[in-house]
Design a protein around this nucleic acid. Structure first.
Lengths: 365, 365
DNA sequence: CTGAAAGCGCTAACAA
DNA sequence: TTGTTAGCGCTTTCAG
């Protein structure tokens, strides 16, 4: 028997497709297609018959068929470094919200900073034919980007890379927030500031570190290479980094971290070492994840708005998908700024003979 | 002009499709299809020609077309409560890993505990024709489940609901871990234990609360309704709940939370109130997210393995997709167990005249 | 074991 | 403005 629409199958409910709608509305399938795609030239009478049939049958178009014929999957890739780092879920949440509102679904890939996994992610995106991809992992191999270029898939990613079209990078002004952080520490009297970076194989981890170094210099402070430790942007990396610092003969009085998770790792290591924040060490994080407000004590950190990041990324992608509307892409950088909470205070041993000062200790304590 | 393969288009690279592979391998497209689908009856000689052509052209099959003709999207839905609650990213990570290894992609939906958003998620899953959906949100409306049933989409979700097929529920033994927690507190001398639940509109939040109540009773302890507070499974809900308790005339000496985020919220509220954990209050969380090891002090909590949850969910779904293999589904419950860290100790005012005891205070302090 | 051909559900060209 | 129809790239009969 040929493969044809089952003639009188009692078990299966009748398949609801565009033909069903067409016949119920007594129009052609083309008219149904036009109606549901909001082509303006459809006769209102026919259109209303179509809509009626649509809702009566509870019809919705088959995504696969649409994708096949149109060549558009209405899928947006979102590649992140590590989904278990709370910054990314916050980003994903914003991203999902915007994408869904615009009729897209998102395909998430988590690279875990591994080149191998990154390749798999890129491959998955390619195979599913995403219409665009936002690479929010901090650092990506160039050859993967080339694959997207070759397939003509718009991508957008964080941070300037040499030789990439400007419309594909979301520049973040790391320096602004980090500078505020360094200034804040300097004003409090800190002269010895350490920095825990992310994995330095990643370009963006390097950017943040470079920003820190440059800010130190602008502030007239010297960097001590011993206090520049490579972390992994995760809790354990932060803990380990702090332990390394504690093993050093001389300690900094303040430490800036490349992200909040690292800072939380440091807080933990200091707790274990029976050292106090900010009395013994001042700490500054980066990202301002929700949790930062809830650490003990609450974390002073540099905020990078993930809503802004998500909005800009999607706008960028979508504007390149249908170049009709949004003509010019705003080329302004995404700003960062310091949020002062309670992990920063005077350097230890300052005023050690005075009673505790409110500014330097957790409130109410 | 009819829509046909562009005859001599210099700009566009030639589309690589099954026909291209077929002609390069000098076989029919049917043979290509069979080869890449590992149909065993293909002549090895032809097969090797096909594979050669495939790798030469860097060909991979068009997912949309495959999905259209086969009716299988190779997409698995994953609905979670709140992606910003770190438990879920950990779950998602496991889920993604397994799904990708088996050739599936996952479509994530975050409901934020809102019925409206939940509906949107269900709709998205339906529209994208997921082959199956894991509903890991704690609590879902019944009518949404019915939609999946109607469309013949296998789903699996957490917790027993009345009148749902057994193969669709992943039963979690909340009681085991919570009982351990209550026992642990009782042994330390706690008699007055509070409980901060999740949003009680959600069935699973109710299960956990019920488990707590039943464990209290088995232990011979009485519940004080004033100490049963409804939270929201998030940081702020935990903080608010603790503040409510602190406003009460009498306080419990220990509090169990429905999840770790809530417990972290409590820790924060206690910090703000200048109260200490575990000296003033013992705290127990639930989930054992990575972060639990890093809170200050590290959180005693009930572990629920999200790897196990993810594995079981996917296995369940996949086994129902092709009922050939995995015949019997293991109906055993997913277990939970207590991980003792440093937020539990003797009740306050016990031994108050003695010097600090190691068991009751953070180590090294 | 192989190939020709019929669709999967839809969009878009084209004719009316 | 509407309907007819040719594919989108693939899987799967069915005839050889």
């Amino acid at each position: 028997m040929k493969r044809t629409r089952k003639p009188n199958d009692v078990t299966t409910p009748p398949k609801i497709d565009i033909r069903g709608v067409a016949s119920l509305a007594r129009v052609s399938i083309a008219t149904v297609s036009r109606t549901i795609n909001h082509v303006p030239t459809v006769d209102p009478v026919l259109a209303s018959r179509v809509w009626k049939a649509v809702s009566e049958l509870n019809y919705f178009p088959n995504t696969q068929a649409r994708a096949l014929v149109s060549g558009k999957s209405r899928l947006l890739g979102l590649v992140v470094s590590e989904i278990t780092n709370p910054f990314f879920p916050e980003l994903i949440q914003e991203f999902e919200q915007i994408a869904v509102a615009r009729g897209y679904e998102i395909l998430i890939g988590s690279t875990n900073y591994e080149t191998k996994t990154m390749e798999v992610c890129a491959r998955r995106m390619l195979e599913r034919q995403v219409d665009g991809v936002a690479i929010m992992t901090f650092g990506i191999e160039d050859f993967l980007l080339d694959r997207f270029t070759a397939d003509n898939i718009p991508y957008v990613f964080i941070d300037p890379a040499p030789s990439r079209p400007l419309n594909s990078v979301l520049a973040v002004d790391y320096r602004a927030g980090i500078y505020e952080g360094v200034q804040h520490l300097a004003v409090l009297g800190h002269r010895n500031i350490g920095f825990i970076s992310g994995p330095l194989t990643r370009r963006s981890a390097q950017s943040r570190k470079a920003a820190f170094l440059s800010c130190l210099q602008s502030t007239g402070l010297k960097a001590n290479p011993e206090w520049l430790i490579e972390g992994n942007h995760a809790l354990d990396g932060g803990r380990d980094a702090m332990q390394k610092i504690l093993a050093l003969p001389t300690w900094p009085t303040a430490i800036i971290c490349s992200n909040d998770m690292t800072a939380i790792g440091l807080q933990h290591a200091l707790f274990e070492a029976n050292l106090r924040v900010p009395d013994d060490f001042s700490l500054i994080g980066f990202d301002d994840i929700h949790l930062a407000e809830y650490t003990i004590p609450p974390l002073t950190t540099v905020r990078m708005s993930c809503r802004e990041l998500a909005t800009r990324a999607i706008d960028n992608l979508l504007s390149r998908l249908k170049p009709l509307d949004n003509p010019a892409e705003s080329a302004t950088k995404i700003t960062t700024r310091l949020i002062v909470r309670q992990t920063t205070g005077l350097p230890r041993n300052t005023l050690q003979d005075l009673p505790q000062m409110p500014a330097t200790t957790p409130r109410k304590r």
